[in-house]
Design a protein around this nucleic acid. Sequence first.
DNA 1: GAGGCCCCTCGAAACGTTTCGAGAGGCCTC
DNA 2: GAGGCCTCTCGAAACGTTTCGAGGGGCCTC
Lengths: 365, 365
Amino acid sequence: MSHARPTLTDVARAAGVSVSTASLAFSASGPIADSTRAKVLDAATELGYGGPNPAGRQLRSGRYDIVGVVIGDKLKRSFRDPVSVQVLDGLTSALGEADLGVLLVPGVESYVDGEIGVDPLLTSAGMDVAVLIWGAHTSDPRVETLRKRGIPIVVGEGNEVEGSSLVEIDDHGGVVATIEHLTGLGHERFVTITLPFRMGRREGWVDDARRELVDWTPTRHRLDAVLGSGVDLVGIYETEASLVENGAAAMRAILERFPDPATRPTAVVAQSDLLAAGAVLALHEAGLRVPEDMSVAGFDGLDLPWFSGELTTVIQPLEAKGREMGLAVRALLADGTVTRTTMPVELRIGTTTGPPPSAAAPRNS
Amino acid sequence: MSHARPTLTDVARAAGVSVSTASLAFSASGPIADSTRAKVLDAATELGYGGPNPAGRQLRSGRYDIVGVVIGDKLKRSFRDPVSVQVLDGLTSALGEADLGVLLVPGVESYVDGEIGVDPLLTSAGMDVAVLIWGAHTSDPRVETLRKRGIPIVVGEGNEVEGSSLVEIDDHGGVVATIEHLTGLGHERFVTITLPFRMGRREGWVDDARRELVDWTPTRHRLDAVLGSGVDLVGIYETEASLVENGAAAMRAILERFPDPATRPTAVVAQSDLLAAGAVLALHEAGLRVPEDMSVAGFDGLDLPWFSGELTTVIQPLEAKGREMGLAVRALLADGTVTRTTMPVELRIGTTTGPPPSAAAPRNS
DNA sequence: GAGGCCCCTCGAAACGTTTCGAGAGGCCTC
DNA sequence: GAGGCCTCTCGAAACGTTTCGAGGGGCCTC
């Protein structure tokens, strides 16, 4: 008796009220006299009652007040990436304001032979809405699972998924602005360093066949913007992860492939700031100057306190994007409103881009 | 009818079996003939049944299969800090392996006049165990709340909380090894840059009164190790957050307070790698060399790809610590076993520490 | 003083599942 | 051929809460 955890019924009995009244005292959702509430709360304290049992509440009300947040393929990668972290940050604060909890869900359990296993949490955990932070297509097995469970979805950076809310940024516009800035400076030969293409990651130069396999939306959008701009793109280097070391490795590969300064690409468009920063580091390592020998532009607008100089980059409102997703969740929860938002970006011109070397020191000198 | 979501009862009826048998087909926890299971599963697919309702399951079984992870005072800070991120990473993978979900819980809702408000999620969300990643004391209101709810606790880096599992690292040993390394090199005048002291954050030099107010366990352990080592500690600089910029600001304050190279401290013990890295950057900024003009040691063993050289630091097994917490959770869940673990650390001597300037260039030269 | 209205409290009915012990039926063994 | 055991299925009983409509009582107004 003293061992079993007290229930609302016990509290009600001790307070001398009905169970329904006791419930009201906690939920604050119905009319109740202050004196009655106090009586109930006192009885609760007396008995060591820790508040209504969530399971009971959830079952009866049909609400969990929990949002499942599906992050990249590995928790590790998502947490390491400041971009995801900032989005997550905006998202959690917007959800927290509505007293919604965030349940972390790994994206996929396994990736074997192209077969994607859905994480058990996605199939069994209680949640009112699911947020797919990084992309989804209609054929996505995760979408399939959620749809079957009747859980509404908010997608970040994905293809349009029927009946789901979508929040994305103007990737295309950002990259186009970058390219225009660079061509305006006189650049003619470009290389681009891309984010991972798809779940089956690899690192290296991209050929035509591989180019068709871009599956991850931001990668595709940003690559398409370069391809569509008509500039002379002499190479596409695909990375395994958006990290400094990957950017550095990419730059080393670029320098190795184009040893001759005369024919070397003069501008590098990296799809993320960390990749760009890594590229700059590798250039310095090789004794080259930025932007005198090569211009490097990034994407994200991260604040890199350790980076000397300032990256030319596309500032995307990461935290605001997260918040926007949170608002989309709340709209879905409030009245089922499906929304679609595109966040604007802004080109910031830093110290890592400048005129190409041929312009600064003409070939005939 | 076709509108309402089907329940297990509907599936059972459609499959021509009892509800309990249908339940067995999903839970895989009882004996059931393969043919029967197939029949149930087919009926489920037919009806578009997405699996057992979590609320029902939770209510009946009393298990949520969810672990509440309480992070620092602000989600933002935790996510920005690679240290937390790595711990979180290890924790989530260890929990994921047991199919336990991670519910993110902001530590406190508010901090006003020393009054700590507990986040509503802590009082109302369903969870089997709570993990306090960064510290707790017995009088902690969060501990109070959880105890009342009967939720077992795993604490990382905290005071011992009665009846809770604890996972910590050997802070003291790490700092002592650092100090010994530095005194061995001939250093005599030390400064230490500390992590935040407590929830009410401030930045600046620490006087005796403030020194009493250290509330955060790693900060206290590491500071006590310096104080107890008997070296000449000429200043304690407290930071507001463990970030590169805070370390740089601290170093600027140090250089300002000790303008004379002859009396300046020659060794800086920073309580984190980011602080140490920031300190090194600020030294370079001021035209000083590391370690020739000043030695800097950190703590954490982070991998900083952008840092030129290698930090002398104490390597703590962050991810392993997270995993260890996950194991503690599982032990608690399995049979209520309360554990207490101290993880070992290891001093790594890098390129940021060396003999003090007086030794390299004696005063009488 | 009576009628009406508002504020508060109450009882009953779900919400959908798992668990438990009982029991039916089939097969093996002696 | 009968007994026993094993495998599988079943029915009933919770699990603890919220919600809904009904209704009781007090106070204000006329």
